[in-house]
């Protein structure tokens, strides 16, 4: 366990040294706050510019608090996923490509430790950033459109957060599988997108799909009741995360690092 912490500490130190620990949370914070703000000001800006012909009536309704928070979730679902995939795509593949993985794994280090330490450090960074973003969105929404009960906010936060964790784990998986960071990043994003399409297209049949967690978080926020399929979806996602993590180690262990 001591050895695991050595690896984990290295990952944390690296995130500090390359500023990930600052820029990722700040970016999420910005993404979270920007949508409530623009939603609030868009009608006023259009008004103030007044470039529209006389008599044009544009009704841009103000969103409800729930809708406002969901707009931010939408940001995390696109730009957030993109940032997570791009930022983590090289975590294993890059080290293998450069050869430094060879330097580490020729020491008596279990491959499972090596991968899981990276995963844990990424997990902390992703949840920290995502929390900063969601909190900002919740706060801005509260001030501009009305307050969402904190408990409901938290439930929404955790449900959708599990999807982000899934995406993050998938990126680490592809990164362990492939030697090219770019390809790992591309495949993670592509898989997330395809999974999203397929799941919403066939949502009657695959209610438990991880990609539907966003939908369920939204439904919960708007209707204040958890859809029936939420729990199965959460369980499937958690299972998939664990499986991906085990696969990552297994796949990586089989690889010949040299050559």
């Amino acid at each position: 366990m001591n050895l695991w912490f050595v690896l984990f500490k290295k990952e944390c130190l690296e995130m500090v040294r390359n500023f990930k620990v600052i820029w990722v949370p700040l970016t999420f914070l910005f993404l979270g706050a920007i949508d409530p703000l623009t939603a609030y000001y868009m009608p006023k800006i259009v008004d103030a510019l007044g470039g529209l012909p006389e008599g044009t009536v544009i009704e841009i309704p103000l969103p409800s608090p729930g809708e406002s928070l969901l707009m931010s979730v939408g940001q995390f679902d696109t730009l957030g996923v993109l940032i997570i995939a791009l930022m983590l795509m090289g975590t294993v593949a890059g080290e293998r490509k450069s050869g430094v993985a060879e330097m580490v794994l020729v020491k008596p280090v279990p491959v499972g430790f090596y991968i899981s330490a990276k995963w844990a450090a990424a997990l902390i960074l992703v949840w920290l950033s995502y929390f900063a973003g969601m909190l900002a969105s919740w706060y801005y929404t509260g001030i501009l459109f009305g307050w969402i009960p904190f408990g409901e906010f938290l439930a929404c936060f955790f449900i959708y957060g599990l999807w982000l964790t899934f995406v993050m784990t998938m990126t680490i998986f592809y990164s362990s599988l492939l030697k090219s960071p770019g390809l790992a990043g591309f495949l993670s994003i592509a898989t997330a997108v395809v999974l999203g399409f397929v799941s919403s297209g066939f949502s009657h049949w695959i209610k438990w799909s991880p990609a539907l967690l966003k939908t369920y978080a939204g439904e919960y926020l708007l209707k204040s009741a958890l859809p029936d399929a939420t729990v199965p979806a959460l369980l499937v996602t958690a299972g998939a995360i664990i499986a991906l993590l085990i696969f990552s180690s297994a796949v990586f262990r089989k690889k010949e690092l040299a050559g």
Partner: peptide, 17 residues
């Protein structure tokens, strides 16, 4: 007070970069 923090975040990101 809502807009200023966002401007600061942007500036901060730029400065760190």
């Amino acid at each position: 007070p809502l807009i200023v923090p966002l401007v600061i975040v942007q500036l901060l990101l730029m400065i760190i970069a």
